Amino acid sequence: MNKPLDAALSVEISQRIKSKAKKTFDNAYKAALATEKAKYVQGFVVFSGQPYRPVEHAWIELDESIVDPNLPHLQKKPENLYYFPAESFSIKKLKAIIEESEEDYPEDDPLPIYGDPPYEYYGDVMLGGKNYLDAYQAAEAKSKEINQPKLDSN
């Protein structure tokens, strides 16, 4: 069972870190660093409407809830968002990965984090391991379910 989204805390943290639109991974990273006992999570978010498919996304999780510092930028009702985690990192692990990435690949953005090869295909993209593929397939099924055309019963 997915954890519930804490919309109020999501908005509060978004404001505190001054989250920016279209910076989902950076926003989640900043939120993780600014929130005690948080885990940084990457995966997919699904909602009804465009783009009618899973969207790669990042958020943080606390023991009992999802906190999404990107919530104000999604412009969707919190109860209509569905989260599908693929990767989760403690703050210590996250910092170590970022530091190593910045040393090894200084010209590349260290986020998002895709883990070690072999990578799997989802949709027409190859990213992440089997956990990414599993999360994408679950998100894709939910997207198809909630984006079904409504048929008139007349």
Rank of each mutant, 00 (worst) to 15 (best):
112 P>T: 06
45 V>E: 12
49 G>S: 06
66 I>K: 08
126 M>H: 01
22 K>N: 14
72 P>V: 07
92 K>W: 04
78 P>N: 13
2 N>R: 10
85 P>A: 13
23 K>P: 00
107 E>F: 00
7 A>S: 15
56 E>C: 02
88 S>K: 11
73 H>T: 08
94 L>Q: 06
50 Q>C: 00
40 Y>P: 03
113 I>P: 10
56 E>P: 07
111 L>G: 13
12 E>Y: 09
15 Q>F: 00
124 D>M: 06
56 E>N: 08
39 K>G: 02
26 D>F: 01
53 R>P: 01
83 Y>H: 04
46 V>K: 09
60 I>D: 05
38 A>P: 05
57 H>M: 07
36 E>F: 01
61 E>K: 05
130 K>I: 09
95 K>L: 09
48 S>D: 12
114 Y>V: 06
18 K>V: 01
55 V>C: 00
14 S>F: 06
16 R>N: 09
14 S>T: 11
27 N>R: 06
35 T>F: 02
60 I>C: 00
40 Y>E: 02
35 T>I: 10
78 P>I: 01
124 D>G: 14
73 H>E: 13
101 S>M: 04
122 Y>V: 02
87 E>I: 04
82 Y>Q: 12
61 E>I: 11
3 K>D: 04
109 D>P: 01
62 L>K: 08
110 P>F: 02
111 L>K: 08
40 Y>D: 10
15 Q>I: 08
83 Y>I: 03
94 L>I: 10
130 K>L: 12
140 E>K: 10
3 K>N: 02
131 N>Q: 10
137 Q>N: 15
119 Y>H: 11
74 L>D: 03
96 A>W: 02
11 V>C: 05
92 K>V: 14
12 E>F: 04
136 Y>M: 08
59 W>F: 02
106 P>T: 03
